[in-house]
Structure formats: structure tokens, C-alpha cells
């Protein structure tokens, strides 16, 4: 049933998010296509490419914000609005219902992330100094060896995977925190002004979770040091060498714990405290 819930959740949210990324795809194809076709001609980016790039940059920058808006409105409407009469009478476990929404919002967050990274890559490799300016381009060129230099391919891949996984965990936990806030805002006491309370509770929940996470991770050193040819577990940041990059695992673990906690808290509020109007 989870796969069916995910399928229908993707259909419901995909109308807006899918259209957005279709535009992104067309723009990227246009910029890349016109760049490689016109490569033999003028070196400078054309007005069309520059305009396309600007739109792409705007969409990419707004995609995270749009994901949050779509995520909140879909959760509110499909569970606590009139559509809740259908959703809550489906023969599915409410944990599956919640899980499908978290998985789909994480997918859209990942899409927004990929969209932003793709835009950056196009800016860097295609438009280059025409768009970002010669000085900025030279600065990025000089910085790259400091970040990437001297590390083996295996270490690079492993650290990129760890970074991405930690990003995706953060996206999933962010979704759960917002869903918890929406559910709380739909309890009887706050139901009349649920939108206002959703904003208040979302900000409060994220702030509290971040503060606790920062407090703990600042006082416990446990992470991975990425050096030239290996990843090493360390328990003291002083062990991190000058050339190494540090990944804080405490933040990731706390994120996961918050995720589990908020998942069950949301499930409890959804089942025991919210009456569908």
C-alpha cells in the first residue's frame, strides 16, 4: 500500500512540481544545446542563453521555497481538509500515510537540490566568465584544488555520498518537523487559525530542534575526517589535520533521532488529537 500511496502523492504534488522541473529541463536543454551548437561561432554567451540562465537561476533559487509551499498545502488539504474524509478512510496504516508524504516531499527536496546543482554546473561549465565574471571564475578555479586537491577518487566519492546522504536526511527531517507543526495547528485549540499556527509551530519546531542539535554537536566531537586517501573516525576535532575536511556525524545522528521522534509525535497527534472538520 505504501507504493500506491507514494504513487498518488507524486501525482497530486507532481502537477506543480513536475511542471516546474519540466520548465527547468527545457531551459537546461536550450542553454546546453545552443551552447554546443554555437560553439564554433562567437565565444560570448548569447542574449537568449543569458536570459535562459537568469530564469533558470530564479527557478532554482525558488524551488526549495516552492517545495515547502506545495508540501504544506498538500498535507493540509489531503489530511485535514475535506479530502481528509477520503484519505483517513482508506484501509491503510496511518504510519504508511505519513511515511508516503515524507518520502515524496524528500524526493521533491532532492529534485530542488539537483536543480540547483545543475544550474551551478551550467553556470560554471557553459556560461563561465560571460555570466559570473572573469574574477569570480578565476577565484573558483583557484579554490577548487584546496577543497578537492590531493584526495583520492575513492575518498572523494565516499565523502560526496556522505554529504549527500546527510543533506537528504536533513530534508526528510525538515519535512517531518513541518508535518508535525501542521498537525499540531489542526488540533481543536488552534484549528480556527491553522495557517497562522502552522507558521508559528514550524518556526518554533525547527528553531528548537536546531538549537538542541547545535548545543549537543558543539560539545560532542564525533565525525569523519577526510584526508588524502582515507576517511577516519575521530572523537576530537583537534585530530583533524590542516588538509582534512571534517564531517560532523553528531549532527546527522541527532537529525535522525529528531526525525524518529517527530514522526511518532505527528502520528500520535494525527490519530488522537485531530478531528477532521
Amino acid at each position: 500500500m505504501l507504493s500506491k500511496l507514494i504513487k498518488h502523492e507524486l501525482i497530486a504534488t507532481g502537477r506543480i512540481m513536475g511542471a516546474l522541473y519540466a520548465v527547468v529541463g527545457i531551459l537546461m536543454a536550450y542553454i546546453l544545446g545552443s551552447y554546443y551548437i554555437g560553439k564554433g561561432g562567437a565565444e560570448a554567451a548569447t542574449t537568449g542563453q543569458m536570459l535562459g540562465m537568469m530564469v533558470l537561476l530564479i527557478i532554482s533559487s525558488c524551488s526549495f521555497f516552492l517545495t515547502v509551499i506545495v508540501m504544506i498545502s498538500n498535507f493540509q488539504r489531503s489530511l485535514y481538509g475535506d479530502q481528509g474524509y477520503l484519505t483517513f478512510t482508506l484501509p491503510v496504516k496511518s504510519t504508511a500515510l505519513l511515511a508516503s508524504k515524507i518520502i515524496v516531499s524528500t524526493i521533491w527536496f532532492i529534485a530542488a537540490f539537483v536543480c540547483l546543482m545543475g544550474t551551478m554546473a551550467i553556470m560554471y561549465y557553459v556560461i563561465r566568465e560571460d555570466y559570473i565574471g572573469q574574477e569570480s571564475y578565476a577565484m573558483i578555479e583557484s579554490m577548487l584544488p584546496l577543497i578537492l586537491g590531493g584526495k583520492s577518487l575513492a575518498t572523494m566519492v565516499a565523502s560526496i555520498v556522505i554529504y549527500l546522504v546527510s543533506f537528504f536526511i536533513r530534508f526528510a527531517v525538515l519535512s517531518i518537523e513541518v508535518y508535525f507543526a501542521i498537525s499540531l495547528a489542526n488540533t481543536r485549540l488552534f484549528q480556527k487559525r491553522h495557517l497562522l499556527w502552522t507558521i508559528v509551530f514550524s518556526m518554533g519546531t525547527i528553531y528548537i530542534a536546531e538549537s538542541i542539535s547545535t548545543l549537543i554537536s558543539d560539545n560532542i566531537d564525533f565525525g569523519l575526517a577526510i584526508t588524502a586517501d582515507k576517511l577516519t573516525f575521530i572523537t576530537n576535532q583537534l585530530q583533524v589535520g590542516a588538509s582534512a575536511t571534517y564531517i560532523n556525524l553528531v549532527t546527522i545522528i541527532i537529525s535522525l533521532l529528531f526525525g524518529v521522534g517527530f514522526f511518532f509525535a505527528t502520528h500520535y497527534v494525527m490519530n488522537k488529537k485531530v478531528n477532521i472538520r
Binding site: 489531503s78 475535506d82 478512510t89 484501509p91 491503510v92
Partner: peptide, 19 residues
Amino acid sequence: VESKAIVAYLPEKNYLAPW
């Protein structure tokens, strides 16, 4: 879950998404 599988419910409201 089990009872929902055997109960068909028609509410007063329109519960279908407008799209």
C-alpha cells in the same frame, strides 16, 4: 485498517481533490 476495508462511506462533503 480492517474495518475500513469493509466499510464504504459517503460523507456529506465533496472529498475529492478539485484537480
